[in-house]
């Protein structure tokens, strides 16, 4: 083991300090969810606030039963599908746009602010505007068409800005070297650019997924005959709110954390093999 020089010790202290801060931060952002975790085990006759009236798995069981109002499972599947599609499109479009923006081109300023406008249009009116146009043209709304359209409008600027950050300070000398050696554009992209920007693409996609999965206002008039999850939850609130929602929230949190654990494991294995 290396000796503890003052410099090493200082670094260790700084790192510990930051780690503790990170943990406090995680507690902070998970704060309100703690009540959610506990209350998902609410007794059969209890509700979505304290006191607990016994403990049970009753509400967890309700997750797989058909719901009273709406269609929780179906809505969740639709929202997941929608979010996944949005994720792919967001990642694709924002990468393409950011690559285009590496060069100066005619109308780039206008395009930039058009993309940004997607962040700024209040969702409810975007939904109204598009719904009206579609009515005029006799096109029915559906979650996989119109809702998908406005979701991408909303998520694209996030992915785009992330990709802009990636391409800024991007060292293009490698690409040029490859071109000089006669590689075509596809090869350059596949072999050089893509590996460098993959984390950014993943982040852009994640933004897309996250923002779409939770989007309510933009979907109000554009989901068509079948609700997405936020619409369904919103509808269920015109009745008594049941701890089923908390079970759902807890389940998705546990599932997400498990996926991250899985990611860590897979990455570790792959990394070892590649070495």
């Amino acid at each position: 083991m290396a000796r503890w020089t003052p410099e090493r010790r200082r670094k260790a202290w700084v790192k510990t300090g930051f780690s503790v801060y990170y943990m406090i931060f995680v507690v902070f952002i998970y704060g309100p969810m703690i009540a959610m975790f506990i209350l998902s085990f609410q007794g059969r006759r209890g509700g979505t606030s304290f006191p607990m009236r016994g403990t049970s798995l009753y509400w967890w069981g309700k997750l797989i039963e058909p719901s009273t109002v709406g269609d929780l499972q179906g809505a969740m599947m639709r929202s997941l599908m929608l979010a996944l599609i949005v994720m792919v499109i967001t990642a694709l479009f924002s990468t393409m746009l950011a690559m285009a923006f590496r060069k100066k081109f005619y109308g780039s300023g206008l395009l930039f602010y058009t993309v940004m406008a997607g962040l700024m249009v209040p969702g409810i009116l975007l939904s109204l505007g598009l719904a009206t146009l579609m009515r005029q043209m006799g096109i029915p709304a559906a979650w996989w068409s119109s809702a998908l359209g406005v979701h991408v409008v909303w998520t694209l600027p996030f992915g785009f800005l992330v990709m802009m950050a990636v391409f800024n300070r991007f060292d293009s000398s490698l690409e040029e070297a490859a071109r000089d050696m006669g590689a075509d554009e596809w090869t350059v992209f596949k072999e050089i650019t893509l590996p460098l920007i993959t984390p950014g693409i993943v982040a852009a996609g994640l933004f897309g997924f996250t923002l779409s999965y939770d989007e309510f206002a933009r979907t109000t008039l554009l989901a068509g005959a079948e609700n997405t999850l936020p619409l369904d939850i919103n509808a269920s609130m015109t009745q008594r709110i049941r701890p089923t929602l908390f079970a759902l929230g807890t389940a998705s949190t546990v599932f997400s954390l498990a996926m991250i654990g899985l990611f860590l494991a897979i990455y570790t294995v792959l990394y070892r093999r590649s070495r």
Partner: peptide, 22 residues
């Protein structure tokens, strides 16, 4: 990603949990 996870619980659900928390 751990910081992103709370986002994957619908906002409307998390909102309900504010009251029993605070």
């Amino acid at each position: 990603l751990v910081c992103m996870v709370p986002f994957w619980t619908s906002y409307l659900i998390r909102a309900v949990a504010w009251l029993p928390m605070l």
